[in-house]
Every structure is written in structure tokens, then in C-alpha cells.
Design a protein around this nucleic acid. Structure first.
Length: 497
RNA sequence: GGCGCUAUGGUGCAACGGUUAGCACGCGGCCCUUUCAAGGCCGAAAUACGGGUUCGAUUCCCGUUAGCGCUACCA
């Protein structure tokens, strides 16, 4: 491989589940690296496991990547459409002696400790009882020494062989890892692994190497769970006459209990974060900092800064725990610090989702929409906040939160005072913050009550919530007509309180 | 069981032989205040343990422990 050329990287998920945060982070690192270096990113779907493969999941993975903002220049390629290539490469290895036909029963080869392929998705609690003697795995397959006559005999028995790699029995295999440094492993630890299953389908080891060679991948950036198997792949590269790429294994993301992220940790798919109302850029920022650091203390890094500063040298070697509260913090930061114009499209989508978009002032008056969002956003955490507690900014159809009524509508003088306030506001010649402020305080003084009593009660009357932006700014945004009519409309409810 | 990787507050990171071990999330307090946030200030909280090497170890080496990964005709 020519290291002076622009790098070529790939993200290669297998459609056995949705796009989870670990995969998303791997995809993001590949993308950041490619962008930073001006290289090329491609997408490849590793769907060679017919048993667990679920083609219908591919669209969701692509959608997840798009939401994340990870783009690819090439692909998606599907390994299921490249099977002939893997088979012919396997035959080449067979012919060169680098591989051999294996007639063992699939189940008999695995060592005594190899749990018979339990579905690793939902592990059961059954711990403890020793599953037989902990014998060392037999790493050299007896079939490697079969003679032509032996093979012919097996063939006559009707056994279809698998093809295994003939792993060297001595020496070491080394490679460079941009994260973990130079690696060198003893070859006697490497078993005669399967390249082509007896059903003619390639294993991961074969297809990943054949494809990475064919697609001229220069840097393999992937989860550290692949670190231990990398020497096998390096051996394969050499047997295939290719130079291995640079590897970069990134640490894993774990759940709060320090185990691998899985369904029981709650939301782990990126689409669930999209659904919850996180901003993609906030999610990216958070994800990028899980296992990578620009070197200093800066944390709020917009995507272009991430791209500018990304480097494999900054990737850490320790597994990271997914910290949901920090993710939310990032989201509030983005909701508040971004130019309003950047968040408007997201709020618009949220309003559409809640059926509050059509006919709203947000559509008719974009300038007003921007001011309203700007007023609301300091106390939002997720996008749905705009249509939950802030619903009254976009529709007259809202109700009064029970806790807010109980807390701020208790005083029995309120119905009378609010009626007077509505009249006073209606009579205002000018509608602005100070005019509203003065009108309300004047009334409070006249009635001998604290302004706060009226302020809080009025807030509930016009937005239905105790938690809302400052009252007079809210009044300005809502406008005189809406404020006056909402106060009057609330009167019966206030009396009933 | 074997092989490997990792180890800084509860969490994410910084410090890549010399710092009063820094930042952020979260947590507690105070300020601001019209509710709730945001914001500001303050605080509690860490180099897993034991040996080396060195004038000097968070940093380098070894061991222990712990966690994780791999050890499939999964990827």
C-alpha cells in the first residue's frame, strides 16, 4: 500500500442488529479521519452469516449513519454479492498450500470449552457450573496433514470440506496499530482458522481481508474486539500477496455496569437518540469524546473542529462507559449555543411531528419563530421540550398543568385580580416588556399583593406551565390579543382551583 | 482454562520523568431570580495494590488484583 496516497477507510457493519452507539462511534472515527486527511470513506455491509443476517435492518443502519452525519463516498457494497470472489481467493490459497481442506465435523473441532454457539444476544444467567474440563484448544487441525488419498477417501464419503488457513507453527506475526502500538504475537497461539465454510460461504476473516485488499483500504479503524484476531488477518494478507494496512483499534464502549452495551442497557441504537430529540451534532460531539481527546481541555467542539483536530494519536486505549447525563448536557449546550438559525429546522421538524406546524405563526412569520425559539431554548434539554412544556407558544390548544395550578392559583383573590389585569393589559396603547411590567406591578400595588403572586398566576394562565420563560418576555412573544384572551379564558379554571 | 489489552475522582478526558494532579458531567452549597433553566462563584471527590529503575514517578519495568477482549464452519 502506498502511504503517501490519500487514505481510504471503511465502515463495515453487519446487519444482525440496529446501528448501536459502539458502531456509530467507529463509523464516526472513520469519517473524521477520512475528512481530516482528505481521504475516502466507504461503506460495506458484512452479510455473510445467513443465519443471523437480517436484510431489512440495512436501511435502518444507513438511516442511522445519515442522521449521525457520517457520509461515504463509495458503497454500500454487500458481501453477499461478492461471494464468488471469496471462493476463488480461497481456492487460490488452497492451490498455493496456504490453506487446506478440512473434513472435521463443524462442531467437533471447537475445543472442549467452546460453548456451542449460544445466542450471544440474550445471555442467560446460568453461571457457575463448570462446563467440562478446561482443556486447551487444539489449534492445529489434523486435516492439515491429509494426503491426497486421504482426501479422496473423505470425498467419497460425501463430506464437503471447509477450507482452513494453514497457520505457521512457529515464529511470530507482527503489525502496526496506530492506537496500541507495534504488536507481535506468537504464531503457536494462532489456530488453523476457517476461511470458507463447508456451505461455501466465507468467514469474516476471509471476506474482510479479501475486501480490504480489493477496496484498497489503507487504514482499518475498528473496535478493539478485533485486536486479537488481527494477526490471523495479517497472515492472510501476506498469503494473498498483499501488504497489510495500518490498523487502529479503538476501545469499546460499555454500559454503566461495565459490560458490553446491549438491549438491557436501555437505548443503545442511534435511532433511539434521534427519536428522543437529540441534535446530531451534539451526539457527534459526545461520541467523539468517548475514547478520543484533542489533547487539551476543550469539550464543546463543533463538527468542523472535530474534523480539524481528529487524530488517531489521540485515541485512548481504555474502554469508555456511556454516560447518558453528559450526553444530555451536550445537547442542552448545543440547543443554547448554536446560532438560532441552526436550531430552527430541528424545532420545525419537532413541531411537524407534534402536528403544531401547519397554520402556526412559526410558518407565517419566520422572524417571530426565531425569537420564540430563542426565548424558549435556554430551558430545553431535548427537542420535544418545544412541544411539551413550551406547547402554548405554538398553539392555543394547551391545558393547565395540575402542579402549576395547585402551586400558583391558590389565592382566592386571583380570579378578580386576573380579570382586572386582562382589562388593564387590553387597554395598553403599547405592547412591550416595560408596558406589561408596569401594568402588572401597578395592579399589584393597588391590590396590595406582591407582584410575584400575579406574575406566577399569569404565567400559568397564558402558557399553562409553572416552568416557562420570564413572564413579560413571554407576553411580548405571544402578543396582546393572545395574552388577554388567554387570561380571560383561564378565569373559570382559576376560580375552580 | 489459554492468550492478549487496559488501569487517574462515580463518569468522560488532561498532565506523554519534575504541576499545590487540570477540565468537564454528575453531586452539595452560595449568588442571580418572577417559576424553571441557563450563567457565575465555592466545595467534596482520583493516580488499584506491591516491588523496582531514577536525584525525582500518574508517567518507565516487573508482579498481584480487577475489568474487558479473543480463543466459532459469528462478525
Amino acid at each position: 500500500m502506498d502511504h503517501t496516497q490519500k487514505p481510504r477507510v471503511r465502515f463495515a457493519p453487519s446487519p444482525t442488529g440496529y446501528l448501536h452507539v459502539g458502531g456509530a462511534r467507529t463509523a464516526l472515527f472513520n469519517w473524521l479521519f477520512a475528512r481530516h486527511k482528505g481521504g475516502t470513506m466507504l461503506l460495506r455491509i458484512e452479510d455473510t452469516d445467513v443465519e443471523r443476517n437480517r436484510p431489512e435492518l440495512v436501511d435502518g443502519i444507513l438511516a442511522g449513519l445519515k442522521w449521525l452525519g457520517v457520509e461515504w463516498e463509495e458503497g454500500p457494497y454487500f458481501q453477499s454479492q461478492r461471494l464468488e470472489m471469496y471462493r476463488s481467493e480461497a481456492r487460490r490459497l488452497l492451490a498455493s498450500g496456504a490453506a487446506f481442506a478440512c473434513y472435521c465435523k463443524a462442531s467437533s473441532y471447537a475445543g472442549a470449552d467452546a460453548a456451542p454457539a449460544a445466542e450471544s444476544g440474550e445471555e442467560q444467567e446460568g453461571e457457575g457450573d463448570a462446563e467440562g474440563p478446561k482443556t486447551r484448544k487444539n489449534i492445529a487441525c489434523p486435516c492439515r496433514d491429509l494426503t491426497d488419498a486421504d482426501r479422496a477417501a473423505r470425498e467419497r464419503e460425501g463430506i464437503t470440506p471447509a477450507i482452513r488457513f494453514r497457520a505457521p507453527r512457529s515464529g511470530t506475526t507482527g503489525f502496526q496499530d496506530a492506537v496500541f502500538g507495534p504488536r507481535d504475537v506468537q504464531n503457536e497461539e494462532i489456530e488453523d482458522f476457517v476461511l470458507l465454510r463447508s456451505n461455501g460461504l466465507p468467514t469474516y476473516q476471509l471476506s474482510v481481508v479479501v475486501d480490504d485488499i480489493d477496496m484498497r483500504i489503507s487504514h482499518v479503524i475498528r473496535g478493539a474486539d478485533h485486536l486479537s484476531n488481527t494477526p490471523k488477518q495479517v497472515l492472510l494478507y501476506r498469503a494473498l500477496g498483499a501488504e497489510p494496512p495500518i490498523f487502529a483499534h479503538v476501545p469499546l464502549i460499555l454500559g454503566a455496569d461495565r459490560t458490553r452495551l446491549s438491549k438491557r442497557h436501555g437505548a443503545t441504537s442511534v435511532s433511539s437518540y434521534a427519536d428522543e430529540g437529540f441534535l446530531p451534532e451534539a451526539f457527534r460531539n459526545f461520541l467523539a469524546l468517548l475514547g478520543w481527546s484533542p489533547g487539551g481541555d476543550s469539550e464543546f467542539l463543533r463538527t468542523h473542529e472535530l474534523v480539524e483536530r481528529f487524530s488517531l494519536a489521540g485515541v485512548s486505549r481504555t474502554n469508555a462507559i456511556f454516560d447518558r447525563p453528559k450526553l444530555e448536557w451536550f445537547n442542552t449546550q448545543y440547543l443554547q449555543k448554536l446560532p438560532v438559525s441552526d436550531v430552527l429546522p430541528y424545532v420545525a421538524d419537532e413541531l411537524k411531528r407534534a402536528n403544531l406546524w401547519n397554520g402556526s405563526q412559526a410558518v407565517a412569520d419566520p422572524e417571530w419563530f426565531a425569537r420564540a425559539v430563542d426565548l424558549i431554548r435556554p430551558r430545553t434539554r431535548l427537542l420535544p421540550d418545544f412541544t411539551a412544556w413550551a406547547r402554548a407558544f405554538f398553539t392555543d390548544d394547551f391545558d393547565y398543568e395540575a402542579e402549576a395550578r395547585a402551586k400558583f392559583w391558590k389565592d382566592e383573590r386571583l380570579p378578580d385580580m386576573l380579570a382586572k389585569l386582562a382589562d388593564a393589559l387590553a387597554a395598553l396603547p403599547e405592547w412591550n416588556h416595560d408596558a406589561c411590567d408596569a401594568a402588572l406591578r401597578q395592579l399589584a400595588t393597588a391590590e396590595g399583593v406582591k407582584a410575584g403572586l400575579l406574575i406566577n398566576a399569569t404565567r400559568v394562565a397564558i402558557v399553562g406551565r409553572a416552568v416557562a420563560p420570564p413572564l413579560f418576555e413571554t407576553m411580548v412573544i405571544l402578543g396582546k390579543d393572545r395574552v388577554v384572551s388567554r387570561i380571560r379564558r383561564a378565569l373559570p379554571s382559576v376560580s375552580a382551583q
